[in-house]
Design a protein around this nucleic acid. Structure first.
Lengths: 139, 139
DNA sequence: TTGCGTGCAAAGGTTTTGCATGGCA
DNA sequence: TGCCATGCAAAACCTTTGCACGCAA
């Protein structure tokens, strides 16, 4: 609350643009900083953290805390897709990849949890842990 | 691999006992340390971390990285229940409660992900984020 | 006696906070 | 001009690593 995101600044725009460009991928704060740096843009870590915090509250980005990683992942969501539908994520515990899964059939799970267990799932935040197809073949 | 957990030590037993007693709840390393401390037992943080790492590999405990928390949660699993069946967990983003969910119907999800998406889910590690029934009513 | 176990101290990495300065409106 | 935004430095935290000593077998 309060007056967050009141002003439009260069940093704010650069951060949002960078997130949009990387839509569909997940980035740590370091990744984001590195990417911006590569574009000739330099923004202090502190500022990035503070903006992401605001964007998270506003539902513009999502935050994942994947087990095994030290830092959190952020991903642009916008308000269009991936927000409404049954968009889950799968994290491969072996290769570390985070896979998008936009599958309508998974809505059954949501309804089941809702009806039988009284739990309202937020699909976007939920992460399935396991082995991706590539890593499974190797194992 | 290697010779981990080769010896039986006071620390090892105390840690496992403490985890067992708290079965069904989730504890951070600090929680565990605090609890042991309350029992008059003092074990170095390093030792706790190292034992939990081994216990995790052996499947005796589970580790959760709940979004929003800095530290990881550990929970005693043993080898009896909650290991084999379709035991998922639901984390309420409001009250922070972590709910066990031992539901056979959820096995459909596992099979669906396996068959249609080639992803082998580890139910025990997977956490659904959302609102529990109590918090939903309030909201 | 051998070699893993233990724990202190320190390092490593992520995130937060304090504070003086900069810049939008 | 009034305030929020910025970013450096430092603090706060969690976790890991190095190393000397302790202890199970």
């Amino acid at each position: 609350m309060s007056d967050r995101n009141k002003y439009n600044t260069r940093q704010k725009n650069d951060i949002i643009e960078c997130l949009k460009e990387a839509k569909g991928t997940q980035m740590t704060v370091s990744d984001l900083n590195y990417r911006l740096h590569g574009q000739g843009v330099n923004i202090g870590m502190t500022t990035i953290y503070r903006h992401l915090e605001k964007l998270l509250e506003d539902g513009v980005v999502n935050k994942y805390t994947a087990d095994g990683d030290r830092s959190a992942y952020f991903e642009y969501i916008g308000t269009e897709d991936c927000h409404r539908p049954m968009c889950f994520h799968c994290k491969c515990v072996k290769c570390g990849r985070l896979i998008h899964l936009d599958c309508g059939e998974l809505s059954e799970v949501v309804h089941h949890l809702e009806d039988s267990h009284g739990f309202t799932v937020d699909p976007v935040k939920t992460v399935f842990y396991g082995l991706c197809s590539s890593c499974r073949e190797v194992a």
